[in-house]
Design a protein around this nucleic acid. Structure first.
Lengths: 318, 318
DNA sequence: CTGAAAGCGCTTACAG
DNA sequence: CTGAAAGCGCTTACAG
């Protein structure tokens, strides 16, 4: 048994006789032999590992994203080296590790600086952003159309005769929150309505505090809360009902964004925009692996429309 | 510059003069050089990668576990190769990949067969289970004491004069669900109370169906629901309130298990057992890495008590 | 303290 | 179709 013969046996399409193949396979079975993917990667310069960098692991949306990613990549025999960031600024720490592990590509749900993006390019590591868009050239991304989703929600609330809006944003360093908040505010500024902005951090608890802040403001009595994610919208509904006896949606309408599982729970039945996670993940994986195969493929940004979910937390027209 | 000099420069404690070190570091900075961890792993037989295998990614508990794991392992410069299983039986597929990637160890929140455990041992790959216990020798595990947690909940419900219990289990192939259900049922069988068992799958939707099933059963009118996880407990509360106008906890008490974020939401304020995730993860990481360093260290099972959270979904005594 | 050499487990032209 | 040889980028005795 030569080394080469064994190697060819595990390489699909290599020229090898049925006889040698049988011999190798038998021995492999007896010894429990599996080719060493690390050594293979060293010579082929393909590790079949992709780094997944996520900065908001607490976002309820992310387990689904991660498990979809694992499924889609797994189908193509690609593995995930996982990096969850506690703070957005830890990107550099993660990237240092990424270089060392010779990953084939990066899927990032985190904010990169221009230098960080350039560093990936310099090293020839394809990079696809998930739910971040960059205006600069040559950056691939899949993204849910946050601005348009917010626009749809606001249209509905407006034709519902809502006049006094609260827009609740997420963490200041979250690009997703910024996009959503900006989408909502931009549309609202075109109308003659009152607008108050408050800053949460995506968490239920932060929404509770924001609602207290709003409700203790004299001279402003809101009739609609527009929240940057579902978790905060849920926090709003609970606080309004339990602490202020407000009827939702009769007195105040509440809308969220994401389409997490809890949005459909009977206590909330949230009006929200559902991100097409499956399609987004599929697109991200395809775009990344295409560019791994062929580095001449140009960058591309794909924007997916979210789907309006009409719940009873805000009775919009269909 | 010899290869050896560069190598020593990146190895802490190696004998190298300040002068050469400076020269190497300067060059490294200019070229953006980082040692290739893959090649290093090939020769040192240490990849600094740990496989994390999770079979219930939909469990709301798991994002926190994963992000804690990442933090704890990251502190020790160890990385996570992630495997999420859609079905418990995919363990073999995951393990095949695990062998190829020469991981240093495995953390598994999934059910392994005796053969699968033996395969890890044969290959000398340390294995620590998370929230699974095995009675066989030589298996390391950290686990929340599910049975004792259930016992505490049941004691409380009993001293509350509850008489007609529903125990709702999770998926049949989940060891965690089995342990919890068995803990509850064992304790209940010691008392003169009525008991009905129903089978959910950990999801909110399955709890809704279970409640319908129970409430349409003539001759049985429950006054306590004991659910194998928080998500189902939440589904119970919602269904009881919205579909049957039941007062929780006055008419029917509901308890869960896990201590997920939503348990504290105002609409639920769940009585549940909180898993000490931080401590459990810390223990799992320590146990695994100890055994990576020194394979003579014997296996160990560590059982952590869960902490009772007294919410208003069941008014237990303190 | 430093460098030349061997070797980790693979793949891949190259000759036969 | 098959095997010997070179080489991927490292680390680590070994000599100097």
């Amino acid at each position: 048994m030569s080394q080469s013969a064994v190697s060819r046996c595990f390489k699909p399409g290599a020229s090898i006789s049925a006889k040698t193949r049988a011999k190798v396979e038998k021995a492999a079975r007896q010894l429990g032999y599996q080719p060493n993917a690390i050594a293979r990667g060293l010579i082929t310069r393909r590790s079949n590992i992709v780094a997944v960098i996520i900065s908001e692991p607490t976002n309820l949306n992310y387990p689904e994203v991660l498990s979809q990613l694992n499924r889609r990549l797994g189908e193509r025999q690609v593995h995930i080296l996982l990096f969850t960031l506690s703070r957005e600024r830890d990107v550099n720490l993660a990237l240092d590790q990424v270089w060392q592990y010779q990953v084939d590509g990066i899927i990032a749900a985190a904010q990169f600086t221009a230098e960080q993006i350039a560093a990936c390019e310099d090293r020839g590591i394809p990079l696809v952003f998930y739910n971040r868009v960059y205006t600069q050239q040559g950056v691939s991304a899949v993204c849910c159309d946050h601005a348009d989703g917010e626009r749809q929600l606001i249209e509905g609330l407006l034709s519902n005769k809502r006049k006094n809006f609260v827009v609740m944003s997420g963490p200041a360093d979250s690009a997703v929150s910024t996009a959503r908040t900006k989408g909502a505010v931009t549309r609202l500024k075109q109308e003659k309505v009152n607008l108050m902005q408050v800053a949460g951090d995506y968490s239920y608890e932060s929404a509770v505090e924001c609602v207290h802040e709003v409700m203790s403001t004299k001279k402003f009595s809101p009739d609609a809360f527009v929240c940057a994610n579902d978790t905060m919208a849920i926090g709003c509904i609970d606080t309004l009902r339990h602490d202020y006896g407000v009827a939702v949606p009769k007195d105040i309408a509440v809308v969220g964004f994401d389409g997490v599982g809890a949005a459909a729970w009977l206590s909330y039945d949230l009006t929200t925009v559902v991100q097409p996670v499956q399609r987004m993940v599929e697109a991200a994986v395809n775009m990344l692996l295409e560019r791994v195969e062929d580095d001449s493929i140009p960058a591309e940004t794909r924007l997916f429309a979210g789907q309006l979910r009409l719940g009873s937390s805000a009775q919009l027209e269909a």
